[in-house]
């Protein structure tokens, strides 16, 4: 218990009267938004891996499917766009 209390007191300068210091809070929010976008991009990338492979397979068999394959492949990209909204909200 006691160790935790000392650890907490070391971040005390950031905290004043139980609230965040405005500047530190802003920095933290920006970092969180960046993390959100990054994770969303990672998720989109993982999703596109499978779809892209399948799309390549389909295109190799029938070239007319190029357009459809491309659209399906970039569909998870909407995830990143939605995550980008967070950047403007904070």
């Amino acid at each position: 218990m006691f160790e935790i209390a000392t650890a907490l007191s070391s971040v005390a300068p950031v905290l004043q009267n139980g609230g965040w210091e405005p500047e530190a809070a802003q920095h933290l929010a920006t970092a969180a938004a960046a993390l959100a976008v990054g994770l969303a991009a990672l998720g989109a990338g993982i999703a596109e891996r499978g779809i892209g492979a399948a799309a390549m397979g389909a295109i190799a068999e029938n070239e007319d499917l190029f357009g459809r394959g491309l659209i399906m492949t970039v569909l998870p990209e909407t995830l990143v766009i939605l995550a980008l909204v967070v950047v403007f909200v904070v």
């Binding site: 492979a53 799309a55 390549m56 397979g57 389909a58 068999e61 029938n62």
Partner: peptide, 14 residues
């Protein structure tokens, strides 16, 4: 395994 690629091609051939 690259299931996505192979199954896409296989289904098309099927």
């Amino acid at each position: 395994s690259n299931y996505e690629y192979v199954t896409a091609r296989v289904r098309s051939r099927r």
